[in-house]
């Protein structure tokens, strides 16, 4: 056996994992599901929600924080542990609005899933619920702090991944909440990373509000149209309209986007889009049919080529078009027109 590996037993099955592996990670590798709410694979350990508890040597321990030690015996789902988990979820629900029917994240909510799993219709523990008014004026991120379960993912992603630190915990005890300094309106890079990691409907995209929930959308994977990072984007589409941008964690951008990628997609469905060819007639651009426009182009270019040679024609291609289009464009100029007068905007 290698020195940098330890062998542990989870639910009666032995496994070897590298030193330093958490019980949660080891279980996940074995395909054993342990519920989590605050844990996020791309962020450092928090240990706040406590629902990932397991039994090690008879003691309840959070599996996201417990590191595997040689010979450990772990039980992930005894009646005792499931009972504790149920009660923790119960406590969270006792301070959560019961408005799944109108929540943006219904069907895509990690808390809802746990409530379903433990079949909690009414919490055993009941009492006061935090009531906040939504009043953040920023145009991107809707912050419904009543739905916040204080898992801390947004705080961590903002600090650890985005390097901004726009939000943090404030106040103490039951009144604890996550907010920008002095509860001012959010004023940040609006990358939306916090939305991406939020397990509930506490943080959602304002431009997407009311446009469609998880089960009603089609999703398409593509690449962001903005800078050269080449981030992978998953668009949610409803009736030929892009309503939301997300990204998967297993992509080169690890699931993160920036404000443009996350929120800058409505231009696709903009009413300003050109929908028909335009031809300048009497100094004005007027709509025309495709055949008319293409024939005119063919005629004029042929004439110019005939009169002044192919080098009197030039083409500028686009860094926003695909490889295939760029290839065709230069092929058109070189093979179709017969000139090397082709360039693109790499210099600007």
């Amino acid at each position: 056996m290698k020195h940098d590996m330890v062998t542990i037993t989870i639910d009666g099955r032995k496994t070897s994992v590298p030193v330093g592996t958490t019980i949660l990670a080891a279980a996940q590798q074995m395909g054993i599901h342990i519920p989590v709410l605050c844990h996020h694979p791309k962020l450092t350990v928090t240990g706040a929600c406590r629902v990932c508890i397991v039994e090690i040597g008879g003691q309840p321990v959070t599996s996201c924080t417990a590191v595997a030690e040689e010979g450990m015996e772990v039980t992930t789902a005894s009646p005792y542990i499931e009972g504790l988990r149920r009660d923790i979820v119960d406590l969270i629900l006792s301070d959560h609005p019961y408005d799944c029917m109108v929540c943006e994240r219904a069907g895509d909510c990690e808390l809802q899933e746990l409530a379903y799993k433990y079949s909690i219709r009414q919490p055993v523990f009941q009492g006061e619920r935090r009531i906040y008014t939504k009043r953040d004026g920023n145009p991107f991120i809707e912050r419904d702090m009543e739905k916040c379960i204080l898992c801390g993912r947004c705080v961590k992603v903002c600090d650890e991944v985005q390097g901004v630190g726009a939000i943090d915990y404030a106040y103490k005890g039951f009144e604890t909440k996550i907010c920008p300094p002095f509860e001012r309106d959010l004023d940040c890079e609006f990358c939306g990373q916090c939305i991406a990691v939020c397990p509930t409907g506490a943080l959602v995209s304002k431009p997407s509000l009311g446009k469609g929930r998880k089960r009603n959308v089609n999703t398409v994977e593509t690449v962001c149209p903005y800078c050269g990072c080449g981030c992978n984007i998953t668009y949610d589409v409803v009736k030929n309209e892009v309503i939301r941008a997300r990204s998967r964690q297993d992509t080169i951008n690890e699931g993160w986007l920036c404000v443009k990628g996350k929120f800058g997609f409505s231009f696709i469905n903009s009413p300003d889009r050109l929908t028909t060819p335009l031809i300048r007639k009497d100094g004005k651009l007027v709509p025309a049919g495709w055949d008319e426009a293409l024939d005119l182009i063919g005629e004029r270019l042929r004439k110019i080529r005939a009169a002044d040679g192919p080098d009197a024609i030039a083409g500028l291609s686009s860094a926003r078009c695909t490889n295939e289009e760029n290839y065709l464009f230069q092929k058109l100029m070189r093979a179709g027109v017969g000139t090397n007068n082709v360039d693109h905007c790499a210099r600007y």
């Binding site: 928090t46 240990g47 706040a48 929600c49 406590r50 629902v51 923790i88 406590l91 969270i92 006792s94 301070d95 523990f125 379960i149 204080l150 801390g152 915990y169 106040y171 103490k172 005890g173 039951f174 009144e175 604890t176």
Partner: peptide
């Protein structure tokens, strides 16, 4: 401190 559920709630 408000961090973990069992204590806060």
């Amino acid at each position: 401190c408000g961090k973990c559920v069992p204590c806060r709630i």
